[in-house]
Write a protein that binds this DNA or RNA. Structure first.
Lengths: 354, 354
DNA sequence: ATGAAAGCGCTAACAG
DNA sequence: CTGTTAGCGCTTTCAT
């Protein structure tokens, strides 16, 4: 079997030098004579010596790893952000500890755990609402923290303007002539503080208001996150009397559910109903879903860069970075019903559709 | 600012006890008088003491973390496995270091890095072919290693029988009466040793052979992984002369591409062409794609459990675990063209289609 | 250029 | 029950 692992002292002894010298060789110090270096290197190789990360870390006072907390990591938008963060962190030479969070309890357990000294050099929290007290707690623990896709404040964060995003979607639909527009979002919002759905809804309503369109509360559906659930809600919405001619879903995942509902109901998209999603995950493009694009991967990358800056002790880390939003028009949205439909006195003929 | 962090010695001094006692309190040793414990706890709280993971780890000889290597982590099937592993590892109290691998070089760099002592207590490699020498290397480094979804041997592994999977898909299609069946897979296989596509193709061919159906090499397309790429290949396949009446895609991602191709070409599924995928990712169910299901999440969970067993030094860790495969029939597959079509002497009428 | 020794922070064995 | 002490493995002054 593999004999007890070899320590630096043994390397030193075998090479006939002091541990200091071995350490210097290990860390490419310039102050080592070339032949000494070679001799040490040879012994290292011969003995199969491998440095202990713990010893190194303890001595240097840092772990060389940063933790990333994400909720529901199987969701495409989340993976995308995570992948972005991972790529940057890996590039910077950090190990990335990933925690998949599925409840507020779990979140708090991990947060407490990472308050432990030398557990991770930094922390990135993605798409996870954090109570102020928790953020404060991490600050006290002295571990650099960056928030991505969260409204919580108290730490540098990278976000988007969700209200503006909702407005963007609403205005796109209004510009196409739609006035009866449904909204589908997830209700998780309330349970442990998620916010984006509510914000996007607010922006959406604001757009309607600005255009003098009254928002029918009956057209707003909130339910569990997920394509299937969204499809259910959409079927309900589209199957009712006076159904909407367009639906804005607070995420692409839910938007795809709406697409499926339309298909199941044999409604044409966008002929009978236009659909707008949010995020621009890969599937949105594949299914030709019009959507409000946010830079998912970039958000993770930027979050990671910020935490690196924090860990390096850089003084001027921006407290808040807003990423740009963009409406990506695809085949799922089209002109609404003819305006004539809005003037019943004139419209004696069947309203025309394009 | 946060004063210099407080060490166990200061807690001991402040509480008027020895460091040993503080350590005992920290580790819930029973051998501490209740009032002593309370006093220490009070001081800990008052001083805001937080244990150093590094100190703890160095003393205990373990890091408390395990590393998971995955390729292309944004792919749904991979995330699923990863999520499974994460859940188990988290449950066991380990931090999980995740590395997203996108090239053989990167893989080797990380493998070398994790050969460092005390970098991680164990390693799980998912869906990543590993050269024997590398596996041997980890063994020499003494770090427990488990392989998930890999054919490489030399370490405990959790896999499926890809050949059987291909056979399953082929037989399903043959049973439906198809004889001209296309195959779409990714060519990544060759570049750094991925194997599953080739294996599935082999099983598929075996099924054809058994049924006395000759495999038209022209019906096999290998290209870059991805829905769009698969769609291209499918369009090519379906647009040609004498197109296949069914297509077996080596993954759901690619199967969905075939579905899109059919839609773009206005071919009915399964009327004009049947489609079978592989994996059973969430989208497959949503799009009614018939597929060969493999337990993705379970593979990650099991891999994690195996590495935990290894780390605990359990003696009887199975060297190879085969997870069950299952054909999930959905709406994307249906009867093939009438058998009469195969007997030209009789079929003077247009072959009927259901 | 290099050896010796003092930490880094904690656990556990050993005495009381 | 509890204080003392010897590591765990490495980096880094401080001399030489």
């Amino acid at each position: 079997m593999v004999g007890r692992s070899v320590r630096i002292a043994e390397v030193a002894a075998t090479a006939g030098v002091g541990v200091g010298t071995v350490s210097r060789v290990l860390n490419n110090s310039a102050h080592v004579r070339e032949d000494t270096r070679r001799r040490v290197l040879a012994v290292i190789d011969q003995l199969g010596y491998r440095r202990s990360r713990l010893g190194f870390g303890l001595s240097m006072g840092q772990t060389g790893s940063v933790a990333v907390l994400v909720p529901f990591m199987t969701r495409p938008s989340v993976v995308e952000r995570l992948a972005g963060a991972l790529a940057v962190l890996d590039g910077e030479g950090y190990d990335t500890i990933v925690c998949n969070i599925e409840s507020a309890d779990q979140r708090d357990r991990h947060l407490t755990a990472f308050a432990e000294r030398h557990r991770a050099d930094g922390l990135v929290v993605i798409s996870l609402p954090l109570p102020r007290s928790r953020i404060e707690g991490m600050r006290e623990a002295g571990i650099p923290l960056v928030l991505v896709d969260t409204e919580s404040s108290g730490a540098p964060r990278v976000t988007i303007d969700n209200v503006a995003g909702g407005r963007l979607a609403g205005e796109h639909l209004l510009a196409l002539g739609h006035t009866r527009i449904g909204f589908i979002g997830d209700a998780t919002s309330r349970s442990w503080g998620f916010f984006s759905t509510a914000r996007r809804l607010a922006g959406f309503r604001e757009a309607l208001r600005r255009h003098g369109v009254s928002a029918d509360p009956d057209l707003v559906r909130l339910g569990a996150h997920g394509t299937a659930e969204a499809a259910e809600m959409a079927i309900d919405l589209l199957g009712g009397r006076d159904p909407p001619t367009a639906i804005f879903a607070a995420s692409d995942t839910q938007g795809i559910g709406v697409l499926q509902a339309a298909q199941r109901l044999r409604r044409q998209v966008p002929g009978d109903v236009s659909v707008v999603g949010f995020d621009d995950i890969e599937a949105a493009g594949m299914l030709q879903l019009t959507t409000v694009r946010q830079p998912l991967r970039a958000s993770g990358e930027l979050g990671a860069m910020r935490v690196c800056a924090l860990m390096r002790g850089e003084p001027d880390v921006p407290l808040r970075t807003l990423l740009p939003l963009e409406l990506v028009q695809r085949a799922s949205t089209g002109p609404g019903p003819d305006v004539l439909q809005l003037q019943p006195m004139i419209s004696l003929t069947e309203p025309s559709r394009r």
